[in-house]
Design a binder for these strands. Sequence first.
DNA 1: GTTAGCATGTAAGGAGTTACATGATTTT
DNA 2: AAAATCATGTAACTCCTTACATGCTAAC
Lengths: 206, 206
Amino acid sequence: MSGQRSRVLELAILGLLHESPMHGYELRKRLNALLGAFRAFGYGSLYPCLKDLLTQGLIAEEQPGSVTKPLAGRRSKIVYRLTAEGKERLQDLLAESGPAAWDDDGFGVHFAFFSQTRADIRLRILEGRRSRLEERLDNVRAAMARTRERLDSYTLELHRHGLESVEREVRWLNELIDSERRSEPTPGLKSPRHTDTGTSAGTAVS
Amino acid sequence: MSGQRSRVLELAILGLLHESPMHGYELRKRLNALLGAFRAFGYGSLYPCLKDLLTQGLIAEEQPGSVTKPLAGRRSKIVYRLTAEGKERLQDLLAESGPAAWDDDGFGVHFAFFSQTRADIRLRILEGRRSRLEERLDNVRAAMARTRERLDSYTLELHRHGLESVEREVRWLNELIDSERRSEPTPGLKSPRHTDTGTSAGTAVS
DNA sequence: GTTAGCATGTAAGGAGTTACATGATTTT
DNA sequence: AAAATCATGTAACTCCTTACATGCTAAC
């Protein structure tokens, strides 16, 4: 029945609408600004997804509430807002700390909404991401060792650069994890739903 | 008629088979070793693609040529080799220097086969890639400038890191381009089909 | 008054993943 | 003889892109 459009888009839309109601066109711009270089969505993905979310009752068209004029038939600009169910769904998505949250797909979006995510979940996502990258690192290193001799200099350079990029990201994650650990000195309690201070992930780099 | 499977896979397969004939299973391993962290293909992509290439006559099943035994019905291990048409096609693909060769998809594979690529094509691909990344850099910077105030620290950190990664890649490309320019001091002639020295792209990094 | 940008959508299709199904060969 | 890994394939499905189709509104 419901098309179950990708978790990534779903989370991104719900997360943005949680901050403030918006119409599709604006949503798309904010979306691509939010995700920066990681990902870009076109209207062909966005609008069908909005339709689905509407059908599932997670978002709703906002009533302008009879302001000054009834605006005679002009219904361009459909402003969407989160419903109560949508807010619940968003909380569920933000609480996910499994592979879906740390895979190449997914990690960027989950990270972008970290300030709305519980501290323990943040930590688990960061650690999951790190071990995934380390796993990949091992594989690539093993593959390089196995085939070292018969590689031309370009292939070698490609691998060297790829490896270095992943290593860089691991270091970045290490800093973030340290930063998280320092600002969460309460390992005993269950889930106070916003232990969150604004502590930032600021880590000076050169 | 022919399913026209992605250029990326097509180039990768033809390029690898050009080095030596192979069967599918091995091809897949060499493929993922070659592309390292960039991309990974499963059998579900590979075998259908091989089928297509076979149909188009770009590759052929290698005849074991009646060695010792007819191997009674055992036809496991299907070894593929490049046909003459396949070699031509490979040359065409390697000669491509447009967007297809420098987009996120494509660049990795084209780079991996640079030692089989003409020097002037290499340069154009590297430059194309660089300007594409610079374009992206401009967009992200502009988007950040526009929305700077209302970004929380996590989103900001995400953008900072993304930006830095792209900047790093641009610097990498700069070094490669310099390296290419230094080793190709013959700008007048048309296409000697292998000006190629083994000059490498080695550029010391700390 | 016409280009540029705002705004909403649909249809078709490309590209690859996942899960499944099957059997041969080597290692333990 | 059981387990691992080699080896080949198919079907269904996901996710997103591209191209199309349409109309309004602001700026030049």
